[in-house]
Simulated scan of single mutants.
Amino acid sequence: MNIQQAKARFGIIGNCPKLETAINVSLQVAPTDISILVVGESGTGKENIPKIIHQNSQRKHNPYISVNCGAIPEGTIDSELFGHEKGSFTGAHDNRKGYFESAHEGTIFLDEVGELPIASQARLLRVLENGEIIKVGSSKTQKVNVRIIAATNVNLPEAVKKGEFREDLYYRLNTISINLPALRKRGDDISLLFKKFAGDFSEKYNTPPIKLSEEALEVILKYPWPGNIRQLRNFVAQLSIIEKERLISLNKVRNVLPKIDNNEIIKFHDESKAELSEREILYKVLFDMKKDLNELKKVTYNLIQKEGNTEILQSLNTTIFNKQGKEEKVILKQEKIPQTINIEESLSLFEHEKRLIQKSLLKHKGKRKNAASELGISERTLYRKLKEFGL
């Protein structure tokens, strides 16, 4: 099979040199059994590469199993991948084969391999090094003969530096790396893909295919397509279904495409940064609420002064509105015990988050599962945070 035959067989559209290089490398490594790491942004079509490799290998008549590691819950991923013994956990009523055992003599494609928990990474490393699996609840090793092809849209070298991905596993997976280019780097392939999708939807919905005006075509060629081929396909589907006019104008394209800053750089998705951004927004809201509360206090105090209610004025300490160093002290005079409320402003987001995790772990006596549930995060995220904070 050559490059053109592979493109025709697996429905790959485009003549970009980088795309053809990726297909060519796939065909060259197919007869071997070495591990392959497919790298590229989400939506670039990484799932086609392992299919090309499997169908051109000596294993093509044996099982091909595709697994999305990011879609399997952390608590069950070992059971799904490596199988389990009867009675190994609640609900394990029978022995179960895992994906690796089911793919014996064939190929297994591990998509989003960067999402694997550290414990599962150690099990995967055993398969790569010794060709062995251990089922959940068993102490016996079992030999499997499986070719492993992995894919990720995560920057694995960076994940290795952060301690989120095992370095030894990275090097074992990365024997050969195949890089798929982002759609924005494929030039005229964008217009070819548009025509292909327009034809597909025309046939599906029994309507004439949509076409782009010259100005509209120029816009989609320059658009960065952060969602890559998947986003382009959805874009064509939306226009094909909604628009009555089959010639799509510039204005219609601009109305449908999400606005993106031309200077924006598309990077690997970093989940930890997304979480931090959410926390920053949360704390900003809290501090804004505190500011509004102080304003309300001032208005209330001024109204009391105007009305001349001396009894209420005498019961309040006017320093309630004055900042004292890094804290605000609110003192309400009562007949017996004065109550002091300290509003802390000096703690950083890092310290706030660390303190919340410490309190939750203390409350649940070190049980990470319960603490993660209370904090509204996954166990995997909590584990990463514990390492980050040195807890």
Rank of each mutant, 00 (worst) to 15 (best):
F268M: 00
F268P: 00
F268E: 03
F268S: 03
D270A: 04
E271D: 12
A274Y: 13
E275P: 04
L276F: 10
S277K: 13
S277I: 09
E278T: 13
E278P: 02
E278S: 14
R279H: 13
E280F: 13
E280L: 15
I281S: 13
I281V: 14
L282S: 13
Y283C: 10
Y283P: 06
K284V: 07
V285F: 12
V285H: 14
L286T: 10
F287D: 13
D288Y: 05
D288T: 09
M289R: 05
K290A: 06
K290M: 05
K291Q: 06
L293P: 00
L296I: 02
K297Y: 09
K298T: 01
V299M: 03
Y301E: 02
Y301A: 06
N302Y: 01
N302G: 01
L303Q: 02
I304H: 01
I304M: 03
Q305E: 15
K306E: 15
E307N: 05
E307Y: 07
G308L: 03
N309V: 02
T310R: 14
I312K: 12
L313G: 06
Q314H: 12
Q314M: 10
N317L: 14
N317I: 13
N317E: 14
T318M: 03
T318N: 08
I320K: 04
I320D: 06
F321R: 00
F321E: 06
N322D: 07
N322W: 03
N322F: 02
K323S: 07
Q324A: 09
Q324L: 11
G325A: 04
G325M: 02
K326S: 04
E328V: 04
E328I: 09
E328Q: 07
E328K: 08
K329L: 11
K329D: 01
V330G: 01
V330C: 02
L332V: 09
K333L: 14
K333N: 15
K333P: 12
E335T: 15
K336F: 15
K336N: 15
I337V: 15
P338C: 07
Q339K: 05
Q339R: 06
T340D: 04
N342L: 10
S346H: 09
S348N: 00
L349I: 14
L349E: 09
E351F: 00
E351H: 01
E351D: 01
E351T: 03
E353P: 02
E353W: 04
K354M: 08
K354A: 06
R355C: 02
L356E: 11
L356A: 10
I357S: 01
Q358S: 14
S360W: 03
L361S: 08
L362E: 15
K363S: 06
H364W: 11
H364N: 11
K365Y: 12
G366A: 11
K367R: 14
K367D: 15
R368T: 12
K369C: 02
K369Y: 05
N370K: 15
A371V: 12
